[in-house]
Simulated scan of single mutants.
Amino acid sequence: MAYKITDDCISCGSCAATCPVEAISEGAEHYEIDADKCVECGACAAGCPVSAIEAP
């Protein structure tokens, strides 16, 4: 199960910049994680300034 970006996301892009497998992209309302690409490393959650990313 992949990490999930919540509605608390402010669309700053810091999570996408830290993802080593490029699993994060800008979605319609906020950034989204491609569950098929996510390797559950946690880099995105560590880099989120508003704690908008939940662990699987």
Rank of each mutant, 00 (worst) to 15 (best):
residue 34 D to Y: 03
residue 44 C to T: 02
residue 26 E to W: 01
residue 9 C to S: 02
residue 47 G to D: 05
residue 8 D to T: 12
residue 2 A to D: 02
residue 2 A to E: 00
residue 42 G to Q: 05
residue 20 P to A: 09
residue 18 T to F: 09
residue 42 G to N: 11
residue 40 E to Q: 06
residue 54 E to H: 12
residue 14 S to C: 10
residue 50 V to Q: 11
residue 31 Y to T: 04
residue 5 I to T: 01
residue 12 C to Q: 11
residue 30 H to Q: 12
residue 31 Y to H: 07
residue 46 A to L: 14
residue 16 A to S: 06
residue 8 D to S: 14
residue 51 S to V: 03
residue 55 A to Q: 15
residue 21 V to N: 12
residue 9 C to L: 01
residue 56 P to G: 14
residue 34 D to W: 05
residue 42 G to C: 10
residue 36 D to A: 13
residue 39 V to T: 13
residue 43 A to Y: 05
residue 14 S to K: 11
residue 46 A to F: 09
residue 47 G to K: 01
residue 15 C to S: 07
residue 44 C to L: 13
residue 7 D to N: 15
residue 55 A to D: 15
residue 50 V to D: 15
residue 22 E to W: 09
residue 26 E to A: 13
residue 46 A to M: 15
residue 35 A to N: 15
residue 33 I to E: 00
residue 42 G to W: 09
residue 24 I to Q: 00
residue 37 K to G: 03
residue 44 C to M: 08
residue 52 A to E: 00
residue 56 P to R: 07
residue 51 S to A: 15
residue 42 G to M: 08
residue 48 C to Y: 08
residue 16 A to I: 00
residue 6 T to Y: 03
residue 4 K to H: 12
residue 36 D to T: 09
residue 23 A to Q: 04
residue 10 I to Q: 12
residue 34 D to C: 08
residue 21 V to Y: 07
residue 8 D to E: 15
residue 41 C to R: 14
residue 2 A to V: 02
residue 5 I to R: 00
residue 26 E to D: 13
residue 40 E to F: 11
residue 19 C to H: 02
residue 10 I to K: 04
residue 20 P to M: 10
residue 55 A to L: 14
residue 54 E to K: 08
residue 25 S to G: 13
residue 56 P to Q: 15
residue 44 C to S: 04
residue 32 E to T: 14
residue 42 G to V: 05
residue 44 C to E: 03
residue 45 A to E: 11
residue 47 G to A: 12
residue 17 A to Y: 06
residue 31 Y to Q: 01
residue 34 D to G: 02
residue 29 E to H: 12
residue 15 C to W: 00
residue 55 A to Y: 15
residue 44 C to K: 02
residue 39 V to D: 14
residue 25 S to N: 12
residue 50 V to C: 14
residue 20 P to S: 08
residue 13 G to T: 10
residue 46 A to H: 12
residue 21 V to D: 11
residue 19 C to E: 00
residue 26 E to M: 15
residue 24 I to N: 02
residue 18 T to R: 11
residue 50 V to S: 10
residue 12 C to F: 05
residue 44 C to F: 01
residue 27 G to K: 06
residue 21 V to S: 06
residue 42 G to Y: 11
residue 28 A to Y: 03
residue 40 E to W: 05
residue 29 E to K: 13
residue 4 K to R: 14
residue 4 K to D: 06
residue 40 E to P: 01
residue 23 A to S: 09
residue 40 E to C: 07
residue 42 G to T: 02
residue 35 A to F: 08
residue 56 P to M: 10
residue 46 A to P: 06
residue 43 A to L: 13
residue 46 A to D: 14
residue 16 A to L: 02
residue 1 M to C: 04
residue 27 G to H: 10
residue 31 Y to N: 01
residue 54 E to W: 01
residue 5 I to G: 01
residue 13 G to P: 04
residue 19 C to G: 04
